[in-house]
């Protein structure tokens, strides 16, 4: 069971949240200049690391705000919580 610190509501049970997958995926553009491979890369390809993973979460049953989480995919330890639009923080 994860205890996730929503940046707005504080620590809450994971059942209030939805995971939106890998974050910092930037949509390529302008649309007419994007190749099929670049578009497939944006839509479908993932880092999928074993270890630290930067991902988007939605506090679905709370403030309904999206934010970023830096989480270990083996231990589930949450290393950082940071707002959308911010760069991935450096953690030890």
């Amino acid at each position: 069971m994860l205890l996730i610190s929503c940046p707005h509501c504080g620590p809450r049970d994971e059942i209030e949240f939805r995971c939106g997958g890998e974050t910092h995926v930037v949509r390529p553009g302008p649309a007419e200049a994007v190749s099929e491979d670049a578009w497939a890369d944006y839509l479908f390809m993932r880092q999928n690391p074993r270890g630290l993973h930067a991902e988007r979460w939605l506090h679905a049953a709370g403030c309904r705000t999206w934010f970023n989480l830096l989480r270990d995919t083996v231990t589930h330890e949450i290393k950082a919580v940071y707002p959308m639009g911010h760069a991935r923080p450096e953690v030890a």
């Binding site: 069971m1 994971e14 995971c19 997958g21 074993r50 991902e55 995919t73 231990t75």
Partner: peptide
């Protein structure tokens, strides 16, 4: 379980 995991164990929800 609903999010990326390499842990060969699941969670209670």
């Amino acid at each position: 379980d609903g999010y990326n995991s390499y842990a060969q164990r699941g969670h209670m929800p």
